[in-house]
């Protein structure tokens, strides 16, 4: 079984040379730490920066340079700043190659819910609805089950949707899964996790074809 760093590490393998990548808050943010150093990738943050770098050294924080999680950041050579409308032109206009975000629920048809629990948690969708409605390549990073042990990979979402039929791939603490017209297709198992364990933790239809390899991370 993977921890959140392991999930980030596995997702980092999906990041290819020349990609512009938008990372959501939470596990997706960690992906930046594991991207291969011999490839060129630029991270976009929807509040208006392309070419995001690591956190600043203490004493060098700048209130005017933050990411979408409102954290102080730095920029790398070649970086640029822009306004919010232009930022979402990059996203809506499909100029961003890969979007990695978290989710509360994903359905077997690719629907995603990650912005609201009615009557309980009301924080808002931020840029998530724009991202999922537009991106060609969306990977969800999340735990396979919630705190109550219930599956987050469902036949259909129970929470208010963020987007419909948009998720392509899911990386959890247990597995790598592709969303296909037939359902959740199991591609890889996390180290030490059996196909049965994944089956038991998946409420939606799980497609298992042949031997399922263990992840290499």
């Amino acid at each position: 079984m993977l921890d959140k760093h392991g999930i980030a590490k596995r997702i980092a393998k999906e990041v290819k040379d020349g990609y512009y990548v938008n990372l959501g808050i939470g596990i997706p943010t960690l992906v930046a730490n594991f991207v291969r150093e011999d490839i060129e990738v630029e991270f976009q943050s929807e509040n208006g920066v392309l070419g995001m770098g690591p956190f600043p050294y203490e004493g060098e924080e700048d209130a005017d340079i933050i990411n979408a999680g409102k954290q102080t950041i730095t920029t790398l050579p070649g970086a640029s700043f822009f306004d919010s409308a232009m930022s979402f032109s990059m996203i809506r206009g499909q100029h961003v190659d890969l979007t990695i975000l978290g989710a509360m629920e994903v359905a077997e048809n690719g629907d995603i819910a990650n912005w609201k629990i009615p009557g309980k948690m009301v924080k808002g969708m931020g840029g998530a609805m724009d991202l999922v409605a537009s991106a060609e390549n969306i990977i969800v990073a999340m735990m396979h089950t919630n705190r109550e042990g219930e599956s987050k990979l469902l036949k259909s979402c129970t929470l208010p949707l963020t987007g419909v039929g948009c998720v392509k791939k899911i990386v959890t603490n247990l597995a790598v899964i592709e969303v296909t017209p037939k359902g959740f297709k199991l591609l890889e198992r996390a180290p030490g996790v059996s196909v049965d364990e994944i089956k038991n933790a998946t409420e939606g239809h799980l497609v298992i074809e042949g031997e399922i390899p263990e992840m290499k991370i």
């Binding site: 690591p54 600043p56 050294y57 203490e58 924080e61 999680g69 409102k70 954290q71 102080t72």
Partner: peptide, 12 residues
């Protein structure tokens, strides 16, 4: 004041 909401830093 330009308050910082999430002060995140890395170690030297």
């Amino acid at each position: 004041e330009k308050r910082i909401e999430q002060r995140t830093v890395r170690q030297r």
